[in-house]
Lab assay of single mutants.
Amino acid sequence: WKVTVKGVEYTFDNPEEAKKFAEELAKKKGGQIHYKDGEFQVH
């Protein structure tokens, strides 16, 4: 499971962890999460 933040990729074994990480980042940066092709992208 991948989380991509401004072109930087983070990989997680667990989808729950990936989702949590993406949500935290989106909150911090005031961005939005897009889920696409099996990965979370924070913009």
Results as ranks from 00 to 15, higher is better:
1 W>R: 02
1 W>Q: 01
1 W>F: 08
1 W>V: 05
1 W>Y: 09
1 W>S: 02
1 W>A: 02
1 W>G: 01
2 K>A: 03
2 K>N: 02
2 K>V: 07
2 K>G: 01
2 K>F: 06
3 V>P: 01
3 V>E: 01
3 V>M: 01
3 V>H: 00
3 V>Q: 00
3 V>Y: 02
4 T>E: 02
4 T>V: 13
4 T>Y: 08
4 T>C: 13
4 T>N: 06
5 V>R: 03
5 V>I: 13
5 V>K: 00
5 V>T: 08
5 V>A: 12
6 K>C: 15
6 K>D: 15
6 K>F: 14
6 K>E: 15
6 K>Q: 14
6 K>H: 14
6 K>T: 12
7 G>M: 02
7 G>E: 05
7 G>L: 03
7 G>T: 04
7 G>F: 05
8 V>D: 07
8 V>F: 13
8 V>A: 12
8 V>T: 09
8 V>R: 12
8 V>W: 11
9 E>H: 09
9 E>Y: 09
9 E>L: 10
9 E>R: 07
9 E>T: 15
9 E>W: 06
10 Y>Q: 01
10 Y>G: 00
10 Y>I: 03
10 Y>A: 00
10 Y>H: 03
10 Y>E: 00
10 Y>F: 10
11 T>V: 13
11 T>S: 11
11 T>M: 14
11 T>W: 15
11 T>Q: 10
11 T>R: 13
12 F>V: 00
12 F>Q: 00
12 F>K: 00
13 D>C: 13
13 D>W: 07
13 D>F: 07
13 D>I: 07
13 D>T: 11
13 D>A: 10
13 D>G: 09
13 D>H: 08
14 N>D: 09
14 N>R: 08
14 N>Q: 05
14 N>F: 05
14 N>V: 03
14 N>M: 04
15 P>Q: 14
15 P>G: 09
15 P>C: 15
15 P>S: 09
16 E>P: 01
16 E>N: 10
16 E>Y: 13
16 E>R: 10
17 E>V: 08
17 E>Q: 10
17 E>M: 08
17 E>R: 06
17 E>F: 05
17 E>T: 10
18 A>P: 00
18 A>F: 05
18 A>K: 00
18 A>G: 01
18 A>T: 00
19 K>T: 05
19 K>A: 08
19 K>V: 07
19 K>F: 13
20 K>W: 08
20 K>G: 06
20 K>D: 07
20 K>E: 09
20 K>T: 09
20 K>F: 08
20 K>A: 12
20 K>P: 00
20 K>N: 09
20 K>V: 08
21 F>A: 01
21 F>Q: 01
21 F>S: 00
21 F>G: 00
21 F>H: 01
21 F>Y: 06
21 F>R: 01
22 A>Q: 02
22 A>D: 00
22 A>L: 05
22 A>H: 01
22 A>S: 03
22 A>F: 04
23 E>N: 06
23 E>V: 11
23 E>M: 11
23 E>A: 07
23 E>L: 12
24 E>K: 09
24 E>H: 10
24 E>A: 12
24 E>D: 11
24 E>P: 00
24 E>T: 10
24 E>G: 07
24 E>C: 15
25 L>S: 05
25 L>V: 12
25 L>I: 13
25 L>K: 03
25 L>E: 10
25 L>M: 12
25 L>R: 03
25 L>G: 01
25 L>C: 14
26 A>G: 02
26 A>I: 14
26 A>E: 03
26 A>R: 07
26 A>D: 02
27 K>F: 13
27 K>V: 10
27 K>P: 02
27 K>A: 13
27 K>M: 12
27 K>T: 10
27 K>N: 11
27 K>E: 11
27 K>W: 10
28 K>G: 08
28 K>V: 11
28 K>L: 14
28 K>T: 10
28 K>E: 13
28 K>Y: 11
29 K>R: 10
29 K>T: 15
29 K>V: 15
29 K>L: 15
29 K>I: 15
29 K>Y: 15
30 G>W: 05
30 G>T: 03
30 G>L: 05
30 G>C: 13
30 G>F: 06
31 G>M: 13
31 G>V: 07
31 G>W: 15
31 G>A: 09
31 G>C: 14
31 G>L: 11
31 G>S: 06
31 G>D: 06
31 G>H: 07
31 G>N: 05
31 G>F: 13
31 G>I: 06
31 G>R: 02
32 Q>N: 08
32 Q>C: 15
32 Q>H: 15
32 Q>R: 08
32 Q>V: 14
32 Q>A: 09
32 Q>G: 05
33 I>M: 06
33 I>S: 03
33 I>K: 02
33 I>A: 04
33 I>G: 03
33 I>P: 03
33 I>V: 14
33 I>F: 06
33 I>R: 01
34 H>S: 13
34 H>N: 08
35 Y>M: 07
35 Y>K: 03
35 Y>A: 04
35 Y>P: 02
36 K>H: 11
36 K>C: 13
36 K>W: 09
36 K>S: 11
36 K>F: 12
36 K>L: 11
36 K>N: 09
37 D>S: 03
37 D>T: 03
37 D>M: 02
37 D>P: 08
37 D>H: 04
37 D>A: 04
37 D>V: 02
37 D>L: 02
37 D>K: 03
37 D>Y: 03
38 G>D: 05
38 G>Q: 09
38 G>F: 12
38 G>E: 05
38 G>R: 13
38 G>L: 06
38 G>T: 05
38 G>C: 13
38 G>W: 06
38 G>K: 12
39 E>R: 06
39 E>N: 10
39 E>L: 05
39 E>T: 09
40 F>I: 09
40 F>E: 04
40 F>V: 05
40 F>L: 06
40 F>K: 02
41 Q>A: 10
41 Q>N: 07
41 Q>F: 11
41 Q>Y: 09
41 Q>G: 04
42 V>I: 13
42 V>N: 03
42 V>Y: 05
42 V>A: 03
42 V>H: 03
42 V>T: 03
43 H>E: 10
43 H>Y: 12
43 H>M: 13
43 H>K: 09
43 H>Q: 10
43 H>D: 10
